[in-house]
Design a protein around this nucleic acid. Structure first.
Lengths: 124, 124
DNA sequence: GCTTACCTTGACGTTAACGTAAAGCTAAGT
DNA sequence: ACTTAGCTTTACGTTAACGTCAAGGTAAGC
């Protein structure tokens, strides 16, 4: 029986136990109980991984929840799947824009650095 | 005299006038006044563009302010420039991770979609 | 039996980035 | 004179995602 405690999970993914309980409170996780302690399985661990991945991409917890529910009930609802594929497409577009923005800034910072170094060299 | 009103700017960049005033309140913008009305120049417009670009990348307003100050005083401080190049590097790494995360999800959603379509085809 | 470590719930606090009235000035059109 | 449109400041409200006590239960080791 490969089960995990809440702090096992917290350590592994570098989040606080408070955060994990919060995800449960929001309905993203439902671990079993041994007495009143939470017991996490490999599936819960996968779910948490999904949550954190979703967050990194910029999804809200509510959106992460939708994402998770997409995997659970053996795929009942086709419409939700499409709306979510749409959301992912949006994120990709946003990522593309971010890439452009960063490249833009990089260029401007490069010239700023040049000006700065020129000014410094004149001080010598 | 190519000057802009606050709602000109708001329209052009699709932000509210409240947001623009907030940026000023936080010290990111300092437009001139005609009477008590704000008057924006092309330079202010560029600054706002920088702010919004910074935000898209994920910088906080405080960080955006640092960014702006990098261009202003004819480049005085070498140290700040380096710390900011560092921050940009961090954002690029984060972007890379986001790309990976999105690819990951895309794969998983692809298989989820397959399962879903299988299930649907069996219903026929 | 006492300490230590880890777990629980409950509830209030926090931060960023604005939203949203409230209350009023001003210039333009009718 | 009246309405409309756009501008102003002041100030309280909002949302997400936790942080941070408070107060206590439990199991292990000495």
């Amino acid at each position: 029986m490969n089960t995990l405690s809440i702090s096992d999970l917290a350590r592994e993914f570098d989040v606080t136990t408070r955060a994990i309980r919060f995800y449960e409170e929001q309905g993203l996780l439902e671990p079993e109980r041994r007495g009143q302690e939470r017991v996490y399985t490999a599936k819960d661990r996968t779910t948490l991984k999904l949550i954190l991945r979703g967050k990194r991409i910029g999804f809200s917890l509510a959106e992460c929840k939708e994402l998770i529910e997409l995997y659970d009930p053996a795929g009942g609802n086709r419409k939700q799947l499409n709306t979510f594929l749409h959301k992912i497409a949006e994120r990709r577009a946003q990522l593309q824009q971010q890439l452009l923005d960063i490249q833009h800034m990089q260029l401007e910072l490069d010239t700023a650095e040049e000006r700065c170094q020129e000014a410094l060299s004149r001080t010598d």
